Amino acid sequence: MSRLLGLLGGTFDPVHNGHLRAALDVCEAGQLDQLRLLPCHIPPHRQTPRVDAATRLQLLQAAIHGEEPRLVVDDRELRRDAVSYTVDTLHSLHLDFPAARLCLLLGTDTFNGLPSWHRWRELGELAHLVVMQRPDFSATDDPVLARWMRERRTEDWTDLRAEPFGRVLFQPVAQLGISASLVRQRLAAGRSARYLVPEPVWQQIQQQQLYAAP
């Protein structure tokens, strides 16, 4: 059977325990061979990250220490001095891992907004989509996306190893109620973010005085 590589992108501004717990849930459920975390350089759908790319990369590497090689930080988007379009990243990964099955991990809100993405239909021609499902998830009301999903949906992880791309699978994950914006807000207000982020990340945030109120 082909190798199954998970891909989780984001600004990770900063990385927090919600990111990592969901990543591990998907790793275990799908028995992934590896999950690659891809920090975004210039996000097309949100504001510029508060912290520079080099620091976010450093925090992410500290966060996964001890989980390698199951979790790996992939900095290819940070090395591109352009908007971080996922379709371009998937093309790049195919060159590096031509025999692997790629599984793009998305949150439920992100998945529902997929038609706003750059060349979004091509994503299903390059990878499988794994939607990290929260308990209160409601299916998309976009008829185009709903029709596109129905033709591809599966409940069986073995389909993702057997087929090269194009499947959509919904995977329940632990919901910790943590967001990067919540962490930033607490830090800007002078409050602690301990236990919301991995301890090595918290130590570096303190040492470098990151995300403090201006």
Rank of each mutant, 00 (worst) to 15 (best):
P14Q: 06
P14E: 13
P14N: 10
V15A: 09
V15H: 11
N17P: 01
G18H: 06
G18P: 04
G18L: 04
H19P: 01
L20K: 00
L20D: 02
R21N: 07
R21V: 12
A22S: 14
A22Y: 08
A22F: 05
A23M: 04
A23T: 02
A23S: 12
A23C: 05
L24A: 09
L24T: 00
V26K: 05
V26W: 01
C27Q: 12
E28Y: 04
A29Q: 14
G30R: 03
G30Y: 13
G30C: 13
Q31S: 14
Q31L: 07
D33Q: 04
D33V: 02
Q34W: 02
Q34N: 03
L35R: 08
L35T: 10
R36Q: 15
L37H: 12
L37D: 11
L37I: 14
L37E: 11
L37M: 14
L38T: 01
L38P: 05
P39A: 12
P39W: 12
C40K: 02
C40W: 05
I42M: 07
P43F: 06
P43E: 15
P44E: 13
P44R: 02
P44I: 01
P44S: 07
P44N: 07
P44M: 09
H45R: 10
Q47L: 05
Q47D: 15
Q47K: 11
Q47C: 03
Q47R: 14
T48Q: 15
T48G: 05
P49R: 03
P49Y: 00
P49T: 07
R50V: 11
R50Y: 08
V51T: 13
D52C: 03
D52H: 06
D52L: 00
A53I: 03
A54V: 10
Q58Y: 09
L60F: 01
